[in-house]
Design a protein around this nucleic acid. Structure first.
Length: 642
DNA sequence: CCAGCCGGACTTTTT
DNA sequence: GTCCGGCTGG
């Protein structure tokens, strides 16, 4: 345009270096609603990060005018790191998960919903507790808690509120939903689904707010678009009604979250939804050898509802996929462990090896074998650091100190460590809180004034309440100091130390670890926000250990060698999916699994397997037959038994 | 109120 | 098998 064109071209040139033509096109296309269909291993993160840098470096927008949303914290972190390396000033970019971005927006507009800006974000644990509570009041079997929690989440995924006609109030789920929503609101809390639902509602009901954000975000980038649910879609459509400046990256072949409310339809419908759209396909794969890509392509081709794309490489065809039959689950784990040892001798690092399974519980059998073989491993996505009992206890104290209305936190710790306030005393407090629609903390204070509780309960409840109050007063304390005071003054640490078991030892270690992590935070609120939204601990990344995880949590990762275990009908594809008639999603899961590998894929299946303490024989997974024969080798061989 | 024992349910995937 | 929750006796 002007005299600085040459300079701009130089900048462009520098950033676009090393991109293939399609990637380049995806980066420089800014004036259209752009959908980047990005096959596995085709460099979508590279495109996204380069695009952000490109926008900033060329001055098309200020960093703060760019919104980039991902699904996982891992993806957000990776993107942040890579963008920062490319361009300074990128820290002003609104880059984060859907949930963290929404939390940010909701905090600055909480009053419009009737929440305080310091509302609490509750996790699934609290959610389930609350639902169980409500079920108990309704005299319904607690077994319903999980189905109810699920139903509520699915409604929220679609921005359906309790009074919506689509909620059938004659069902348990519908009834609980209304009470649940009232109760959680009275606690000044929101759950994951609320984060999106409330922001959508704010946008809908306050056009000036929506307008503000629309003007603010000149460019919106969305990662894993195939996994967006209805409320995320509504959210995006409101922020970018015609799709100007919108760039969605995704792969319909890797849509594996329908059970969580994701709608593949969103990506399939892209061209109809927005004006002036453009689709760029990234098909050139830089990750895997030819046989792996060939096998993956032949499998996914069996799906009927796809936009269609074929990943390819001009690199080596490499080794064929190995399919091996095992006599039973035990043998399967043994085969895998032995093969891992062999790979290690061929100098494949442990950190470059992953064992992927369909369901979380399947990791146990492999853990046992790996321990027996002395192979170091980690279970990814299993018990998360912030999910551990002792960590949640400590955080509950901090939550209560920060926000005394947080009755879920109150309930968690009122008798932890044991201070003689058991079920009966608690139930009195709870009843009072419900009757007057006040927090448990307030109810406690009231009942202490009335002095209607048993003397021993009065004494310890007073101590507890006073402790919380005094911590609240000491504003100058840092989060670490607060945490130390909690562990000390409540006797929590002492109680643990007295147990002297291996388990309590580990818990103490975990708490110490948390204290170290706490040093990164200057105020309590920042830390609480962090733990509410970030479920994984960032460490353990560089460990040279074998990764054990579900296919779902493997998405976005890559390894030199990948073991895909339990390929049997009923296990994978899973029975539930078969019943729901959702085999295509299982097939996509298989596709995701295979494409995690750079060089080696080993697929195993067991003829017999113990489920619920009962032996079952399963047929080999249908997916095995769907892999094009030219890319695989079968080893039916001997059954290895001890 | 609490510790310890017993019986049943559990297993799809998670921000 | 294991974990959780309910029941019972101290």
């Amino acid at each position: 345009m002007q005299d600085n064109t040459a300079e701009k071209l130089d900048v462009n040139h520098y950033l676009l270096n090393g991109l293939n033509p399609e990637q380049r096109e995806a980066v420089v296309t800014l004036d259209k609603a752009l959908l980047v269909l990005s096959g596995a291993g085709t460099g979508k993160t590279k495109v996204l990060t380069t695009k952000i840098a490109y926008i900033i470096e060329n001055g098309y927008a200020y960093p703060s005018q760019i919104l980039a949303v991902t699904f996982s914290n891992r993806a957000a972190r990776e993107m942040k790191e890579r963008v920062f390396n490319m361009t300074p000033g990128a820290d002003a970019v609104w880059l984060g998960t859907f949930h963290s971005i929404c939390a940010k927006i909701l905090r600055s507009n909480a009053d419009l919903i009737g929440l305080s800006s310091s509302f609490t974000i509750i996790d699934m644990d609290d959610q389930l507790k609350l639902i169980k509570q409500i079920l108990k009041e309704m005299n319904v079997d607690k077994k319903m808690a999980n189905p109810v929690a699920n139903a509520i989440s699915r409604w929220k995924d679609k921005c359906i509120r309790p009074n919506d006609l689509r909620v059938d109030v004659t069902t348990v789920e519908g009834k609980v939903y209304a009470t649940y929503q009232e109760r959680i609101f009275s606690y000044d809390s929101v759950d994951f689904g609320d984060l999106l639902m409330y922001v959508v509602r704010i946008f809908k009901e306050n056009s000036h707010i929506l307008q503000k954000y629309r003007e603010k975000f000149k460019y919106i980038l969305v990662d894993e678009y195939q996994d967006t649910n209805m409320s995320q879609y509504m959210w995006l459509r409101m922020l970018s009604p015609i799709g100007a400046g919108l760039c969605c990256v995704g792969d319909d072949d890797q849509a594996i979250y329908s059970w969580r409310g994701a709608e593949v339809g969103n990506i399939l419908r892209f061209e109809k939804d927005f004006m002036n759209t453009k689709i760029v396909r990234l098909e050139r794969n830089y990750r895997s050898v030819g046989h792996i890509l060939g096998a993956a392509a032949s499998l996914i081709a069996k799906n009927t509802t796809r936009l269609g794309k074929t990943i390819w490489t001009d690199g080596d065809s490499g080794e064929k996929l190995v399919i091996q039959r095992a006599y039973n689950g035990y043998d399967e784990a043994k085969i895998v462990a032995e093969k891992i040892e062999k790979l290690r001798k061929e100098s494949v690092e442990f950190g470059q090896i992953a064992v992927l399974v369909r369901a979380g519980f399947q990791t146990r059998e492999f853990e046992e074998r790996l321990i027996a073989y002395g192979i170091p491993y980690k279970v990814v996505g299993g018990l998360k650091f912030y999910d551990r009992q002792e960590i949640k206890d400590l955080i509950a104290y901090m939550r209560l100190i920060y926000q005394t209305n947080d009755s879920l936190a109150f309930e968690r710790i009122i008798n932890v460590p044991k201070r003689g306030i058991g079920a009966s005393a608690f139930s009195k407090l709870h009843t009072r809180a419900i009757e007057r629609n006040i927090s448990l903390f307030q109810a406690s204070k009231d009942m202490l004034v009335e002095n209607t509780l048993r003397p021993s309960v009065t004494a310890s409840l007073t101590t507890f309440i006073e402790f919380i109050k005094s911590m609240r007063k000491q504003k100058e304390l840092s989060p670490v100091e607060i945490a130390k005071a909690i562990l000390d003054e409540t006797g929590y640490m002492r109680a643990l130390a007295n147990e002297k078991t291996l388990e309590s030892q580990g818990r103490i270690e975990n708490l110490k670890e948390l204290l170290i992590a706490l040093e990164d935070f200057d105020d309590l609120h920042m830390f609480i926000e962090h733990v509410s939204l970030v479920t994984e601990s960032k460490r353990n990344n560089a460990d040279e250990v074998v990764s054990l995880m579900t296919l779902h949590s493997a998405k976005g990762l890559e390894f030199e060698a990948v073991f895909l275990a339990g390929w049997e009908e009923g296990v994978f594809p899973h029975n539930m999916s078969l019943q729901e008639g959702n085999v295509e999603e299982e097939r996509r899961l298989a596709y995701v699994g295979i494409t995690r590998a750079r060089k080696y894929v080993y697929i195993t299946y067991a003829m017999n397997r113990k489920v619920y303490n009962q032996w079952m024989s399963n047929l080999p997974s249908r997916f095995l037959a769907e892999l094009s024969p030219e890319h695989v080798v079968h080893i039916k061989g001997k059954t290895v038994r001890d």
